[in-house]
Design a protein around this nucleic acid. Sequence first.
DNA 1: TAATAATATTCCTTTACAGGAATATTCCCG
DNA 2: CGGGAATATTCCTGTAAAGGAATATTATTA
Lengths: 109, 109
Amino acid sequence: METTTFSALAEPNRLRIVELLLSVKGPLTVGEIADRLGLQQPQASKHLRVLLEAGLVEVEAVANRRNYKLRVEPLQALDVWLETYRKVWDERFDNLEAYLQKLQSKENN
Amino acid sequence: METTTFSALAEPNRLRIVELLLSVKGPLTVGEIADRLGLQQPQASKHLRVLLEAGLVEVEAVANRRNYKLRVEPLQALDVWLETYRKVWDERFDNLEAYLQKLQSKENN
DNA sequence: TAATAATATTCCTTTACAGGAATATTCCCG
DNA sequence: CGGGAATATTCCTGTAAAGGAATATTATTA
């Protein structure tokens, strides 16, 4: 697992940008993002740059504006990575189940 | 979504610790972690502290040693957070499917 | 072409944090 | 009780990164 996705999302304002882009389900302009999140334009630009380099967003230039939208690939990679952990906590659950069954069969004796 | 999980995992050596603890499926000692990852003991301790504060690991003190093991809760929270994104990329997939069906019905005319 | 809008970049300052080295702490055992 | 093992903490230094302010860049439009 690459650490770039984590560090990109480790900054609160960047996480907010990602969640904003998720909630609107479509591209947003730098100015719109800055407005909605109460960020100054340069900071919005800078955070978007980081997100861009991390592959979490993509841009389309339309005249003066830049439309930023989410890319799901890094989050899908994260999802795949978590798959391993899901197995672990499923196993623990299975163990718990097995343990409970054991208890139950003891009670039946 | 809290940003602490992300920042904890944003550091490569900490991510390696988490993955190591996952692969061994059981608790490990500070020394064992340092050895297996080629870290110096103080750095291992410091990283484990951060992971501990982020709730990603827990400790059990046994005499001289500290046994660290994974906690799945933060990763489960991450999993829940990703659920929203899964919906998004499923929607995109649905749209693709709808589009393909549309194509197909056109071909049938 | 000048003015303006939208965005990106640069410079500066402050802060957080990682690694190295040394040291403190805690516990076991002879 | 003293020594040694395992771990944590502290101090120092270098570096990366975030925000603010100013400025550069690019494109539109009158």
